[in-house]
Simulated scan of single mutants.
Amino acid sequence: MRKETENEFEDELRPEYDFSKMTGGVRGKYAERYKAGNNLVLLDPDVAQAFPTDESVNEALRLLMQIAQRQRTQHQ
């Protein structure tokens, strides 16, 4: 548990991490690429328990897509 201090923003970094010496960084350089390549979805706890891995979620959704496609073709 974190100690209560008078100064909430007290520096806890080690001395070797001197960010003032870091140069050349560009803020948000890969932000657009990151947003374009990620489709994150927050699962409810009960769903996450039933499908604990991304592979299991994808497999279940692909099966559901197949069933839906069959239903569409049967009713046309």
Rank of each mutant, 00 (worst) to 15 (best):
M1L: 14
M1W: 07
R2E: 13
N7W: 02
E8Y: 06
E10S: 03
D11I: 01
D11M: 01
E12Q: 10
L13G: 04
P15D: 09
P15C: 06
P15W: 03
E16T: 06
E16F: 08
Y17K: 15
D18T: 00
D18S: 00
F19Q: 01
K21F: 01
M22T: 10
T23D: 09
G24R: 00
G25C: 13
G25E: 07
V26T: 13
V26Q: 06
V26L: 07
K29Y: 09
K29A: 15
Y30S: 15
A31R: 13
E32F: 04
E32H: 05
E32T: 15
R33T: 12
R33G: 12
K35L: 11
A36H: 05
G37T: 01
G37H: 00
G37W: 00
L40H: 11
L40Y: 04
D44R: 11
D44C: 12
P45T: 15
D46H: 13
D46Y: 07
D46N: 11
V47Y: 05
A48I: 00
A50Y: 01
A50Q: 11
F51P: 01
P52W: 02
T53E: 00
D54R: 10
D54V: 06
D54H: 11
D54P: 10
E55L: 11
S56F: 15
N58A: 15
N58V: 07
E59Y: 07
E59I: 02
L61V: 03
L61I: 04
L61G: 00
R62L: 13
L63Q: 09
L64D: 04
L64R: 03
L64N: 05
L64F: 03
M65D: 09
M65V: 07
I67R: 12
I67S: 12
A68G: 04
A68L: 10
Q71H: 06
R72L: 11
R72Y: 06
R72H: 06
R72T: 11
Q76S: 05
Q76L: 10
